[in-house]
Structures are given as structure tokens and as C-alpha cells.
Design a protein around this nucleic acid. Sequence first.
DNA 1: ATTTTATTTTAGACTAATCTAAATATTATT
DNA 2: AATAATATTTAGATTAGTCTAAAATAAAAT
Lengths: 219, 219
Amino acid sequence: MFSPTEENYLKAIYLLTEKDSARAVATNELSAQMNTRAASVTDMLKRLADKRLIHYKKYKGVMLTTSGKSQALAIVRKHRLWEYFLVEKLKFQWDEVHAVAEELEHVKSEALIDKLDSYLNNPKFDPHGDPIPDRLGKLSASGFKNLTSLKVNEKGKVAAVIEQQPAFLKHLDKLHIHMSTPLKVIEHIAFDKSMTISINQTATVNISHEVAKNILITK
Amino acid sequence: MFSPTEENYLKAIYLLTEKDSARAVATNELSAQMNTRAASVTDMLKRLADKRLIHYKKYKGVMLTTSGKSQALAIVRKHRLWEYFLVEKLKFQWDEVHAVAEELEHVKSEALIDKLDSYLNNPKFDPHGDPIPDRLGKLSASGFKNLTSLKVNEKGKVAAVIEQQPAFLKHLDKLHIHMSTPLKVIEHIAFDKSMTISINQTATVNISHEVAKNILITK
DNA sequence: ATTTTATTTTAGACTAATCTAAATATTATT
DNA sequence: AATAATATTTAGATTAGTCTAAAATAAAAT
Ligand SMILES: [Mn+2]
Ligand SMILES: [Mn+2]
Ligand SMILES: [Mn+2]
Ligand SMILES: [Mn+2]
């Protein structure tokens, strides 16, 4: 149906507007996300517009059409299901799966992804806590809170990470912070916005604001 | 390293010479196998020769170099491991897996294929009885016999199929002939070379020479 | 309201992979 | 050995996706 490149552009537009789907995406934003030059983006935007996957007006940025969004959700679904498979079944680390899923997501087979979904027991969240769209593109509401918003003595479990670069994920590994790890806030340090937390009821450590703000928590 | 297209050509050359690796493959043979025109094949052969993956002399056909053969084996390994995964874990039918594996085989990750291999307990044969090369490209010897070569009253189990078109595989399904199904020869009919066989100690049927010669048997 | 800066688009070029039509080489047939 | 038939290669085009450099537009600063 669509080429891997077209799929990657659609996914990139979707991910940039995941929080605010009414907003337009700028050419330079996309060129940063895709590691291509702005001129290449403009070319591709014309092609995606011809295929009615995006709304595009010169110089005005771009938004997904209904059809484009549903395509994008299908790719995100595949990406996240494959990530789940790689971690749960093949025992990859959570910092290793993104690059591989980036290729697997382009394999064209409805049957494959539906059977994979069943085989994995229809998981709702991927190894980074991101929601996995169902066959119809529907996302589970997560209602996670940012770690920085917890008060002293409040507890919770790690539910998702915002930043997902391997360097950040490996840093969390070193702190023994993983998906579902229980955390408790010991102190907020006003000076640098850092936090002291207890991890898994054992270690007590200080983490920077930069780290804390990239961790989402559930009960 | 190599594009999916280059990989497909290498695999095609390998498969055409799997029985007799000393033999040269003709341009038209490849164009038939790849569903492209002869002119496209010639173009690609030049590129593969530049990369030292094949020995190519104009009008003289083509053979894999050592490097080309080891590349081809790596792709065949991926293809057959994915087929095994699709049948054993995702419950695909044996006539449905080839097309999907044709895409999965191009995913670039050593770790992925090694972990998949372990996860599947290092299978030696794919769902069609074809040997799965190991990490080093080594193939298990199979020693299967052609069903047509069995004498009356000789028994054996289905070990592999030569023809692998979905139409043929579905025909075998209808006869309840699958991998490992026990067969016994009841009679050879000289007139049309057809055979009467018992399937799974229950049904007794007559199968054409065309069918019989595409079934391989083990003890 | 100009001018400067930043963003985006256009123009033109390149590579991989394909095609058709024409030219050339090889093989088979008389 | 000459001719006919078949196989292969070359020539020239096309499309997707990319790039750099230049031109055009929009936004920010004076
Ligand atoms: Mn991708
Ligand atoms: Mn993820
Ligand atoms: Mn393939
Ligand atoms: Mn197979």
C-alpha cells in the first residue's frame, strides 16, 4: 500500500502531534525527526498530500487527514507490538528494541500482526509504557502522573518513560529503575529541582530534575 | 549492508544452485525466478559483480563467490527461521508463511536472528522440510528419500516437500498429508506411475506421480 | 515600516531499481 | 557453414527518495 518511507513520515507526523493532534507540524520539525533535509520533506509532503494522507498548505505546516491518522496508528501499533514481543519473548533489553521495531513495523501482513497480538495476549502498553493501538486504532487511556508531581511520601510504580534514548534507558537500568519498579518520594530539593527517592524499598538516591521529569508513575 | 533487492537476487541464485553449486545460472532463469525482465537482471548482475558477490562473465551466466554464498545462506537462514516461527508460534498454515518470511528475512539485526533461533530451540528444518543453516551457514544433511522410490509395503514419514506452491500444499492438506504424517506404499501403478498409499494408517488413496514425486520421506 | 534572520520551497542533480525497444552474441537447425 | 531462433546485453526512460544551492516567503528585530 505505502512505502516504508511514506510510513515513516506518517508515523513521525503522528508522534509529533500525539499530545495535541490539532496542531500543525513544521517542515523543519519533520526534517529533524526524520534525519533528512527540509527540501526532501517538502517533496514528500507533496506526495502524501496527493494521496490524501495529509492536509498541506505551502509554508503552513502539515496535519494528518483521517485516513493518514488511521494509517499512522496502524504503523504505531505494529511498532509497539513488535517491541513488546522482542522484550517479552526474545529477552531484548528495553533500550535495544526501538531500532529493530523500526524495520519490523513495515512488514505487510494483517494476519501477521493480528496473530502476533493474540500470541502476546493483546498487550495494552509497550516496554516503554506507550499505549498499543488496537486493530481499530483505539488507545488505552493511561492516566499516568509525572514523577515530579508526586508529594513527599507519595508512592507509585514506574509506568512509562518519556525520553527513550538508549543512553537514558541505560542510566535508569544502572539505578535499577525499570517498568513497574516501586518508587517513593523522600524529598524535593528546591535548589535544583532534584528529588530524593527510594527505589524498590531499598536504595535511596538523588535524581536530577532532568531524569525525574522523564518518568511517569501509576498507582 | 545490502539492499533487500540485492539480497533477493543472491538468495535466488543460491536456491537455483542448491542442488549443484558448481553450475552457472542463466540470466533468463533469474529473470523468471525474480519476476523481472532480463535487462533488469543484467543491470543487477553488474552491481553484484562490482561488490564481489558473484562471478560474472557476459553471456556466460553467473555463480556465487564465497562471500556471496555466505551472504545468501544468511538470508536463507533468516527466511526459514521466520517460517518456523510463524508456523510453530503464530499458528500460520504451511502454505501461508512464504510470502511473509520473504519480507521478514530482510530485517537487519544479528541479535534478532540469534535470539529468535534460541527462542525456537535451534530448529534444523523449516515447515517445508528445508534445512535451516546455522550461524556459520552449515546445513544439516537430511538424507530424505523420494516417495516414488519406496517399494510396496515400505513405510516412512513425510519429511519435506519439493514443490511448495500454496496450491500444492493445500492439496496435501486435503489429503491429510502433513509434515511427519506416516505413509505406507500399497501399490505402484505402472500405467500412469501413480501410487496407492495408506495415510496415517487410516485412509488409503491413489496419488498421481506428479504429487508423489514432490514428497520426501524419512524413517 | 524596513531590514534582518529563519524557514520553506524550488531547481537541478544523483542513485537504485525497474522497464521497453533495439542491438549483439550464442546456440540450434537446416 | 550459413541461417534462423533464442538468449543476453545495451541504450535510453521512468519513478522514489534523497541531496545542495538558490530563490521565495514568513517572522522577528530594529
Ligand atoms: Mn520504520
Ligand atoms: Mn516504544
Ligand atoms: Mn525477500
Ligand atoms: Mn520454506
